[in-house]
Amino acid sequence: MKKFDKITLSLGGHSSRYYGKSGFNIKIRGKKDLYGRNHFKLRSGSRDATYLRHKIVYDIQNHLGIPSLSANFSQLYINGEYIGLYIMMDCFKTSWIEYVYSEKDTTSLYKCTGFGNIPNIQSYMDKRTCTNENEDYTDRTEYNEFIRNLETARTIEDYEKFFDVDLFITQIALEYLLGSWDHFINGGNNIFLYKPRNGNDQRWKFLLYDFDADFGQDIIDEDKFNMIYQDLFNYTMENDQELFKPEISNNLFKPHKNDSIKHPYYSFEDYALHGYLLDALIFNHQELFENKLKELITKIFNPTILFPHIDSLKEFIEPYVRLDKTLNNEGIYPGKFDRKNNIYTYEQWRDNCEFTPVKNVVETNSGSYGIKYWILAKYRYICTVLHLDCDPNYMNISQ
Score class of each variant (00 low, 15 high):
188 G>T: 10
130 C>P: 10
164 D>N: 13
187 G>T: 06
199 G>C: 07
205 K>E: 15
150 L>V: 13
129 T>A: 03
196 P>H: 15
153 A>M: 07
190 N>M: 08
190 N>K: 11
174 L>C: 09
125 M>T: 01
164 D>P: 11
180 S>V: 08
160 E>N: 09
202 Q>M: 15
194 Y>P: 04
158 D>W: 02
202 Q>C: 11
193 L>A: 09
203 R>Q: 11
128 R>L: 10
200 N>L: 13
184 F>N: 05
153 A>I: 09
178 L>Y: 08
207 L>H: 12
183 H>Q: 08
194 Y>F: 15
210 D>Q: 11
185 I>N: 08
196 P>E: 15
139 D>S: 00
181 W>N: 12
178 L>W: 04
177 L>Q: 04
181 W>C: 14
168 F>Q: 01
162 F>W: 09
162 F>S: 10
167 L>G: 06
189 N>L: 04
170 T>Q: 02
162 F>H: 07
163 F>L: 00
188 G>F: 09
128 R>H: 12
186 N>Q: 14
135 E>Q: 05
182 D>W: 10
206 F>S: 05
141 T>Q: 02
207 L>S: 11
189 N>F: 08
171 Q>P: 12
164 D>Y: 06
152 T>W: 11
156 I>H: 01
185 I>W: 06
144 N>S: 02
166 D>Y: 02
195 K>S: 12
201 D>W: 03
200 N>D: 13
125 M>R: 04
193 L>N: 05
188 G>Y: 06
130 C>L: 11
159 Y>Q: 07
174 L>D: 13
144 N>A: 01
191 I>S: 03
165 V>M: 13
161 K>W: 02
123 S>Y: 07
151 E>N: 14
156 I>M: 08
155 T>K: 03
163 F>M: 02
149 N>P: 03
146 F>H: 01
151 E>F: 13
139 D>I: 00
181 W>H: 14
172 I>C: 07
209 Y>N: 12
179 G>L: 07
193 L>S: 03
202 Q>N: 12
165 V>Y: 11
135 E>F: 08
186 N>V: 05
178 L>Q: 09
145 E>M: 04
148 R>G: 09
150 L>E: 08
165 V>A: 13
173 A>I: 00
163 F>E: 00
132 N>A: 05
188 G>C: 05
151 E>M: 12
157 E>G: 02
211 F>C: 12
133 E>N: 15
206 F>C: 12
208 L>A: 11
194 Y>A: 03
139 D>Q: 02
156 I>E: 04
162 F>I: 06
205 K>W: 14
189 N>E: 09
139 D>R: 01
181 W>P: 09
183 H>C: 05
146 F>M: 01
137 Y>L: 00
129 T>E: 06
143 Y>A: 02
164 D>I: 07
144 N>C: 02
134 N>C: 09
209 Y>L: 14
154 R>E: 15
132 N>R: 03
200 N>Q: 10
211 F>G: 13
139 D>L: 01
146 F>Q: 02
133 E>R: 03
148 R>C: 11
197 R>V: 15
175 E>C: 07
202 Q>A: 10
123 S>A: 05
128 R>M: 07
